[in-house]
Simulated assay, not measured.
Amino acid sequence: MEGTTRAERALIALRQRILNGDLSGGTRLFEVALAEELDISRTPIRAALSKLAEEGLLDRAKGGGFVVRSFRLPDVLDTIELRGVLEGTAARFAAERGVTKAALTQARDVIQQIDMALSGHEIDLDQYSKLNQQFHKLLVQMAQSDALAREIDRVTSLPFASPSAFLDDAASSDRLQRHLSAAHEQHRAIIDAIANREGARAESIAREHSRASRQNIIFLTRQEGSLRDGAPPLEILST
């Protein structure tokens, strides 16, 4: 149990250092130095590094060890585009194959909870992010395809490719309010299309929905100062 706790602590600490830019792309990571710095043994450090490599934040170096990956903005945008294609396919599968009333009720309950998260003077961004992730998981489940679920899980494993990536910017801004409200209306439209067995429409809306994340990243990377301060993953991107 203690070993698991230490491995998780190392994973969280190293992931955060990568995402906030403290460990820049190309940095070679050494188990001994990290173990001394974090005051834990090499075994949990080794486990954390392997996990970060699975997440796509590290590359295995020639001759052993790990190197922090560098990410180009065009590659990130392509990844989000790919997520849109896969989630569009999931929405089409769900509409064509049909889903249970219970599944539709569950999705609409999440939509109502998101309505509440967006209804205040200031957005409850933590709640929105959790519910948004939940909605996208339900969408994948509705597709009834293990193969598709595996591919979506692989694509969204990188921090910047998940549906809620890059949402931590200026929660009180009018721009973010408009952005999230528009994206949420697409949530509602996707479920309506699935319920009505409109496969092509469900796929089209889901693919367009992913472009909201793409547009948000483009907007944030063009900003300076406060709008970028709340989005640490931007630090690992290069143009």
Rank of each mutant, 00 (worst) to 15 (best):
H184P: 01
R197L: 08
R207E: 01
L167A: 10
A195D: 08
G120S: 10
V155A: 12
L86K: 02
L180C: 15
P163C: 07
L125T: 03
H179E: 08
E96A: 06
A102N: 02
D168Q: 06
S129I: 00
A182P: 10
H121G: 14
E185K: 00
L104N: 05
L86P: 08
R154P: 12
E185H: 06
A102T: 00
I123G: 13
L180T: 07
I111R: 09
A103N: 00
G98N: 02
V140G: 10
M116N: 04
D146K: 04
L138K: 14
I114L: 01
H179P: 07
A202R: 11
A107C: 13
A117K: 09
L158W: 08
A165W: 03
D168I: 00
A195H: 14
T105S: 12
L158C: 11
I152S: 07
L180G: 10
D174R: 15
F93R: 01
Q141V: 09
T100G: 07
S145N: 05
F135E: 07
P159Q: 07
D192R: 04
L180E: 08
A171D: 13
E198S: 15
L167I: 11
D153H: 14
R207L: 01
D168E: 11
I191C: 03
Q134E: 13
R150Y: 04
L131C: 01
E185A: 04
I217W: 02
S164K: 06
G120Y: 12
T105C: 06
L167E: 04
F160R: 00
R178Y: 13
A189G: 08
R108A: 08
H209T: 01
D153Q: 13
A149Q: 05
F160M: 14
Q106G: 12
R154K: 11
A90T: 02
L125Y: 03
K130S: 10
H184W: 15
A143R: 00
I205A: 06
I218C: 09
D174Q: 15
S145T: 01
I190H: 14
R201P: 09
R197C: 11
G120F: 11
H121S: 15
G199H: 08
A189M: 07
A165R: 00
Q144C: 02
R211I: 02
P159T: 11
A189V: 02
I123F: 10
S129K: 05
K130D: 09
I123S: 10
A103P: 03
S119P: 12
L167M: 07
S164C: 10
I152T: 11
H121L: 03
R201M: 15
A107Y: 13
P159E: 10
L131G: 02
I218G: 09
A212V: 02
L158I: 09
A107M: 15
S119G: 09
N216H: 11
R154L: 14
A102D: 04
A182H: 11
A95I: 00
L176T: 12
Q177M: 13
P163N: 06
Q144E: 14
